[in-house]
Amino acid sequence: MTLRDFAIRYGFLALLVGLVIFFSLATDGFASPQAAVFIFQSVAITGVLALGVTATLVVGGFDLSIGSVATTAMMAAAYVMVIMEQNAFVAVVTCLVIGVVVGLINGYLIVYMRVPDLLATLGMMFLLVGLQRIPTEGRSIATGMTLPDGSTANGTFSAGFLALGRHRFDFFLPNLIPVSVVVLLVLAVLIWFFLEYTRFGRMMYAVGSNPKAAELAGAPVKAYKIWAYVISGVFASIGGILLAARLGRGDIASGNNLLLDSVAAALIGFAVLGAAKPNAFGTAVGALFVGILLQGLTMMNAPYYTQDFVKGAVLVVALVFTFALSNKGRT
């Protein structure tokens, strides 16, 4: 293995370790379990969305609608509990159904209507951003709000639902790990195992790399593509559930950065271990990388408005790793 190969393979992980060491030395309290958990929590929702979009990247597609699926799920959860006065279970199921349905529609548009993936999901994104505002005439949903017909919404977020955002599990220290972090880790392991070790994951990579060859090897290419968008939609709706549980209300102004942050995490993941292709482990590391960097900079008193600049810089560096240094990126 030449130095160059080594740099491509481990360069990004080395950079990550280097950052952690640097922040640990440069700030007080960075190297603590609480800070680590805080980083995980800050990237939990982004990470879940990024893992979902990774599935569409694997089949050679792209899903721009994930951010709006998440916010639509959040609004739907709030609507179901606050206005329709249903319980947490109904809210969660409603969100998941939204994810599945949007994924199926995206897949149908792309596979059968032959709309290019970026355009189909861009259209879906706009559609959902608008749709989620229609039932409440553009207002956020919270207990006690006035409804369009003049009555007052009396429902509340159920305690069980809020626990998804606020409960913390004991882990060596009491009340350490929030539910959202557990969800992130479980989903990361699930999708990683699915993509790397099952025949379905292998076939999805084959479909993304050479659809014709995959079809001639007996793969139902169209079905795999549609499934990838369903996975993406469901993961995005899970992200939306976590967002609603964290906020405790249906806030129309939240979730603006979700799409770009999660796409960035998935693309940064290309550079991890020199994969030069979408992969679940890389996506998780990509999300963490952004989280660590932002947390460290915040603790070093870097102003909030530099955050997007930093994220963009990391993404550009990662893309250079993927496409310029690695031979795999060349076609």
């Binding site: 076939m203 990579y205 790399s209 014709k212 060859a213 995959a214 001639l216 292709k277």
Partner: peptide, 21 residues
Amino acid sequence: AESGIIKDFNLYENLSLPFLD
């Protein structure tokens, strides 16, 4: 190149492709 090889896959992954199930 066009209808056989999955270029992101290595030799054994290319070989097993049709019979994964």
